[in-house]
């Protein structure tokens, strides 16, 4: 892989880290409470429990961060 200058990648590294950690904290945390609703008033989206869709979304965000990092930040050095 090509090796772009480190300083140019710094903003991307910071953005990916922030998004990844935010997804990790908000996904199972506050977001899950907001997305899923409460036991008396369960939320659904297209007939699917919203809590399950929220999990899929959170996982997608975290995995995307890894894929972007693997394509741009992580260098094959040997």
């Amino acid at each position: 892989m090509t090796d772009p200058p480190t300083d140019k990648l710094r903003p991307l590294r910071i953005r990916l880290t922030v998004v990844f950690l935010a997804a990790l904290l908000i996904g199972p945390g506050l977001g899950s409470h907001l997305a899923g609703g409460d036991p008396e008033n369960v939320r659904f989206l297209f007939g699917v429990p919203a809590l399950y869709l929220w999990l899929v979304f959170t996982c997608l965000v975290m995995t995307s961060c890894i894929l972007i990092a693997a394509r741009t930040l992580w260098r094959d050095e040997d």
Binding site: H33, G36, E40, V42, P49
Partner: peptide
């Protein structure tokens, strides 16, 4: 998902602490 939507609401929403599998434990575990 039609069958699943008939399940008890507690199974489809996040429990508050200190119930099992609450958000705090999930975050620190993950």
């Amino acid at each position: 998902f039609k069958e699943v939507s008939q399940l008890d609401g507690q199974l489809l929403t996040m429990p508050d602490a200190p119930a099992k599998f609450n958000a705090w434990h999930a975050v620190t575990f993950c």
